[in-house]
């Protein structure tokens, strides 16, 4: 069925978007990371490798961590998407305990890959609140961090899991 509109729910707000090739429309070839960054102004997800290898653009879609550079926006109709901007409590602006744990463990350096790493970790903890170290590493195997904050990230996720118990 041909569809000319899609609805995305991003961080709890729904957005109706038109599909097409004209100005302001979502081209059928457009990736989700582009829509999030350019149309919705959510620049936390970073477009880095643009071929699904580095995880810098990771968001959570219907509970799964996905590289948003590998998803076409037109495929996202009816999906629930959470980006790094959606982790804070919308009322109080309190940080998610996982974000706080990244601060407490200084689990970042340049911070470019951090939103993606946090979103991957968040999806893991939602599905598996008590991951062991191997499960944390496995979940993050698709996230590239070149400053090498991996040791601190693993500590941060472990601590967030522990505090969540």
């Amino acid at each position: 069925m041909k569809q000319d509109k899609i609805r995305l729910t991003v961080n709890g707000s729904s957005h109706d978007l038109s599909i097409g090739v004209n100005l302001g429309e979502i081209a059928p070839s457009e990736t989700l990371v582009h829509t999030l960054r350019e149309t919705l102004g959510l620049t936390g997800a970073k477009e880095s490798c643009d071929h699904g290898a580095c995880g810098c653009c990771t968001v959570i879609m219907d509970g799964q961590a996905v590289p948003s550079c590998m998803v076409l926006t037109v495929e996202c109709h009816g999906k629930e998407i959470t980006t790094i901007e959606g982790l804070q409590d919308p009322e109080t602006e309190a940080l998610d305990p996982l974000q706080q744990s990244f601060i407490d463990n200084m689990a970042f350096q340049c911070g470019y890959c951090t939103p993606g790493i946090i979103m991957t970790s968040k999806a893991l903890l939602e599905k598996n609140p008590r991951p062991d170290e191997e499960e944390i590493k496995e979940a993050l195997a698709g996230n590239f961090c070149r400053c090498i904050s991996q040791y601190q990230v693993i500590e941060a996720v472990k601590q967030a899991a522990k505090n969540g118990r």
């Binding site: 620049t43 936390g44 940080l95 601060i103 407490d104 970042f108 951090t114 946090i118």
Partner: peptide, 21 residues
């Protein structure tokens, strides 16, 4: 001493501005 970096909250919330933003 290990103290949170002054820009820590910006980094973990995606608010930190990079050139592409």
């Amino acid at each position: 001493k290990n103290l949170p970096r002054k820009d820590a909250t910006d980094i973990v919330t995606g608010r930190a501005t990079f050139l592409d933003d």
